[in-house]
Design a protein around this nucleic acid. Sequence first.
RNA 1: GCGGUCAUAAUCUAGUGGUUAGGAUCCAAGCUUCCCAAGCUUGUAACCCGGGUUCGAAUCCCGGUGGCCGCACCA
Length: 559
Amino acid sequence: MVCMPDIYDKILSLGKRRGIIYPSYEIYGGKTGFFDYGPLGSLLKHNLEEAWRSLYIIKEGCMEVVTPVVTPFEILKASGHVDKFLDVIFTCQKCSSSFKAPDILNKEVTLPEAGEAIKKGITCPECDGQLTAEEVHLMFETSIGPTKKQPAFLRPETAQGIFIDFYNLYRFFRQKLPFGIVQVGKGFRNEVSPRQGIIRLREFSMAEAEIFFDPSHKDHPRFSQVKHEQLHILPAGKKDIKTSLQEAIKNKIIGNQILAYYLAITQKFIISAGIDAQKIRFRQHASTEMAHYANECWDAEIFTQRFGWIECVGIADRSAHDLQSHMNATDADLTAFHRFDHPHKEKKKLVKVKMDELGPRYKDKAGFIKKQLESMSPPKSGDITVVLDGKSLVIDPSCYDIVEEEVSLEGQHFIPHVIEPSHGIDRILYCILEHNYQEVEKEGEMYTLLSLPYKIAPIPVGVFPLINKDGLPQVAYDIEQSLRQQGFLAFYDDSGSIGRRYARMDEIGTPFCITIDHQTLTDDTVTIRDRDTTQQERIKKANVKAYLDKKFFSSEKRF
RNA sequence: GCGGUCAUAAUCUAGUGGUUAGGAUCCAAGCUUCCCAAGCUUGUAACCCGGGUUCGAAUCCCGGUGGCCGCACCA
C-alpha cells in the first residue's frame, strides 16, 4: 500500500525528535514491543498518571498501594492466569510451522490431550510432517532465588497484588465497604508477535482500581451525579447506541450502578486528559471473549487513525472471582462482614461440653472431640457419635448437656465483589498525542501544535528574552528560576528568533510563554502568550505565578 | 508463526555497479533581530547487520534483524 505518512508516523517522528518516545534498545536494532519514554515523554506520562491519581485518590477516595512485579507461581496459579494465559501449540518437525492446538482439533485441549492427538495420527496440515506439542505462556517467566529457584512470573496485571492484600486493606478501611484500592505500575505480557508499535507493548504501564463492595448493595452513592451522562455504547451482539447511563441501567444494558458509574468517570477522565469526546465508545465483551476472571466487561475504546478503535480502558465486573480463588488456595479469610440492622435471633439447641468429664477420659483427643460436638446440631434422641481416627465413637452423655439457647446472629460474612477499571496508560497517552496533534498552515508553512490539556503538557511555561542584549537574558533567567522555585517547570530559551521559540514550545504543547522585552526594564511587566490563541497579555512580573495558578486551576480540561 | 513489502543523518528524502553519498528540516556556535519556524556565516551528523558476486556494492544475490500491510494470534 502506498500511503502518505499517517498521523502515527508523524507522532513517532515528533516523539523521537522532541524526546517523547524512543524505540527501546535502538542501537542494538530495537526490540518489538518495548518503548522508552524520553525526557518530555516521562513528564507527560507522569502528568497523566498524576491526573489519574488526582481523580481516583483525591476525588473518589481510593487509596494507593505498591506491590511487587515479580509474582510467585502459586498466586497466578490460584488466580487462573497460569492455566488461562497458556496456549498449547503444535510445531511441525519438518517445516517448523506452528499452530494453535485448538485451531487444529477444534476444541480446547490440555498438553497431554494434544499429545494423545499426535499419537492418534494428527500431522502437519501444511506438509503432513510429524508434530510435537508444547505449551507457550503469555506471561514472562522468571524465578526467585539464584540457586534453589522458585518459579515466578512478571505480573500480567497489577490487580493480583491488591487482592492478595485484601485482608490488610479491609482492616485499614476499618472493615467498611465499599472501598477502592488503586495501583499504578508495570504489567507484562509476552506477546507472540506484537504489532501496532506503541499500542501493543510487552511491558506496559497501567493504572488499575479495584472497587470492593457488598454484592447485595450494587447502588453507587454518587450515581445520581452521573446518571444523565451520555455514552456511546456498543452492547455485545447489538448495534451501537447513544444513551444515558440512567437508561442503560433501566434497560439492563449495563448490569449495575457501580459498573455504570465507572463507565461515566472513565469517560470524563479521558476527555479531561485530552481525548476527543467524539472518538470514544464503550464496547461490551461477548461472553466468549471475556477474560477468565470477568463476568461483565466493557472496554472504553478510543478511535485512532491507523489502528481504528483500540481498547484503552477495561472496566470489568470481576465479581468474587479473585478473592474466592485466593481463599480456596490459602487459609486466609478474605471475607467482609455485614452487620444486620437488627440481630437475627433464634432459639437453637446446642451441645454444651463438660470438659471436666471429657478431659480426663479422652486426654489429648478431648479438644478434637469438643470441636466436633460443638459444631453439630444435637440429635433429638439417642447417643451422639463422633469420628476419631477414622472410627466412630459414642460419647457418654455424662460428658455433655444439651441446652436450648437463644443465639443472636449479628451479621454474616460474605466475599466482596469487585469492579475494576483498568487503564492502559501508554495507549491513552498515544491517543492523547494523536487527538491533540494539529497541523495548521501558517504563512504558507506547515505548523505543528500539540493542544494538550494544561495539566498534561510536559512543560507548562517557557521564558524568553525577546533579544539577547541589554540585560534581557538575565531578567528572563531570573524569572525562570523563580518559577521553578515556586513549582512550575519553566523552560528558558534564548536561541533563534522569538517566533522559532514559540514554535518549539507549541510543538510540545507548552501552554504559556513569557517574554521579557525592554518595557520589562522600565515597568516590571512581561508579556504572556497563550498557546491556543497566540494572544498576548501584558502583566506585572510579580503576578506571573498567580496568573499561571489561576490559568492552570480554572482550565476547562483540568481534573 | 506464514506471506508481501520496505530499510540512506535526530527527521523527511535524492541517489539503476564507478570521484569526497546530494538536498531540506532540525540541532549547535556566531552575527542579526522590539513578538510568532525571517536572513547570513560556520559546524555536527547517515548507506540496518553478516556473508557472497565483482577490479569496484548504498545499488545485484543469499541469510539475519527491524518497520509496515494481510492472515493467524491476543484483548
